[in-house]
Amino acid sequence: MESCRLSATELACRRGDRVLFRGLTLALGGGEACQIAGANGIGKSSLMRLLAGLGEPFAGTIARDGEVGLIDERPALDPHLPLGRALAFWERFDGRAAEAVGRLGLAALAEVPVRFLSTGQKKRAALARLIAQAAPIWLLDEPLNGLDTDAVALVETIVAEHCAAGGLAVVASHQAIALPGAQRIALRDYAA
């Protein structure tokens, strides 16, 4: 995997007229992982969007080296299409087959329209899309929502494999997730 890097310096984030957090600094290189923990509404998702470059920070700078893959609460799959065809769009777009479909237990769901899938199944589908994107930087916003215990273990394994292959991962979750050797940032410590 190509080399990658993600760093943020003295980051502050504002939502409306409220500053959610300030002074946040983090630096990750290839093979490293980080968990962002914190209660609902503390700014985990906002931080992920800033790190992804989808928003402008209120203060501070972000440096990125490598393509970003993001999972958030929206799976970005056409709801009316059968899962297989919805994923096929991203396969064509990214030029790579979503080979993780079988491993994620989605093979039997290929004919089921995305809108009929459960929360956990949509999360798995988003993971299949993420893996096929082959981006070195993974930003996972609440990746465990709706997943059963087996799937949680699978996500932990997949993230560990990604880091072992030289990628980096930032996981925002209020749930416990086992990421060996991961930094842990409690967003509460930076609350403004």
Binding site: A52, G53, L54, E67, L70, R74, A76, D78, F93, Q133
Partner: peptide, 13 residues
């Protein structure tokens, strides 16, 4: 926009 497609396209450059 609601599906998050535009975000995914932006991330892919």
């Amino acid at each position: 926009l609601e599906l998050g497609m535009f975000d995914q396209w932006a991330l892919r450059g």
